[in-house]
Simulated scan of single mutants.
Amino acid sequence: MSTAAPDPVEPKPAATVLLVRDEPGAGGLQVFLQRRVAGMAFAGGMTVFPGGGVSPDDVPDPRRWRGPEPARFGSWLGQPSELAAALVTAAVRETFEECGVLLAARPGTEPGPLPTTTAWRDALVGRHATMPGLLAEHDLELRADLLVPWARWITPMRNPKRYDTAFLVARVPEGQVADDATTEAVEAGWWSPSEAIAGYAAGDLQLMAPTLRTLEELSPHDTAAEVLDAAARRAIDPITPEVRREGRVVTITLPGDPDWRYEEARS
């Protein structure tokens, strides 16, 4: 007697930020990565870009939005404008919560060194404040113009936890410092894409397929400006990896790129 397969879980909207900079002194491209706490329900122990799920409170005030309109982000990402606005807001919020970088500024100014904002960050993390609320309270504009869409990844249908994730690029503002003061990660820092890929190949870093693929796409670029320029010219098609399991080995491939493979052993 056959049993019908359960309906796939509806993917939750999420945003991930590829925070980039030119390495101080040397000048080569670097990207900010965090190694998540091993016991976390999603991506425990993995090295990832900052990001997370969209909150119901990620509804921006259009009077405090500077940059391309949400409908423009929607056209880039293939999403309704309301959801695109929430994705950009979530990207700004998660970047501030997870690494202390705030992509916002007072009207007529550029983001720069931050005043003491520990209380702002703690309030967000503790869900005692929202990003739109903080922007209004401190007379700040959300700087959507500093974020450029890079990709959109959708978790395969058979997974019990699914996300529809917008990957966006941002250069860390001059004078701001990305840190590791988050309970979600055990360490964080700046890596060149090629160093992170080599660390994965050596078994020193655990990377999910979208992270590895994105690092490979970043690696040909030498500077943050090159990455932002490349992002502005990318055509974004949603990517849903194809998963095949043979014994303990799980193989992930990408539609339209049969030569790319990602393998991992699972219990």
Rank of each mutant, 00 (worst) to 15 (best):
P60A: 09
L134M: 09
M131T: 14
G247W: 09
K161E: 07
L147P: 02
R266W: 08
R158P: 02
A224M: 07
A123R: 15
D179M: 04
D61K: 13
P193S: 08
L124I: 09
E97H: 11
D222Y: 13
L228S: 00
H128T: 04
R127S: 01
V148N: 00
I236R: 03
R36M: 06
T240H: 09
G175T: 12
A185W: 15
A38Y: 08
D164M: 06
A136W: 12
A185P: 03
T240K: 11
A86D: 07
L142A: 00
I197N: 01
H221I: 10
D180Q: 14
R63H: 10
A5Y: 07
A104D: 06
R121G: 07
T240P: 03
A104M: 11
L33D: 08
A90P: 05
A202C: 05
G28T: 12
Q30I: 14
T182W: 06
L77W: 14
R261M: 03
A14C: 11
R158I: 05
A178D: 01
L147K: 04
M46G: 04
A5C: 00
A202M: 11
G112Q: 07
D180G: 15
T89L: 03
E246H: 12
S219P: 01
A144E: 01
E263C: 01
A86S: 14
W76V: 12
A170R: 10
V125S: 02
A181C: 11
T89A: 06
T95M: 03
G199K: 13
R72S: 05
L140R: 12
T3A: 08
A84Y: 09
G67P: 01
R261N: 01
L140C: 01
G39M: 02
V169P: 01
L33N: 02
R21T: 10
R72T: 15
L18F: 11
R106W: 08
Q206F: 12
A136T: 14
T89S: 08
L207F: 12
K12W: 05
A178V: 14
D122C: 07
G27T: 08
S55L: 13
T211D: 04
T251P: 05
P220A: 03
A38V: 15
W65G: 03
M131C: 08
A188F: 14
P173E: 03
L29M: 05
A170N: 02
D7N: 13
H128R: 15
T183Y: 08
V186T: 14
A136E: 09
P70G: 07
V37I: 09
T3S: 04
V172W: 11
R106V: 10
T155N: 02
P210D: 00
A41I: 13
G112M: 06
R63L: 10
A188V: 13
L19V: 12
E264G: 00
A38D: 07
Q34L: 15
V227W: 01
K12G: 00
A225I: 13
T16P: 06
F73I: 13
L124W: 14
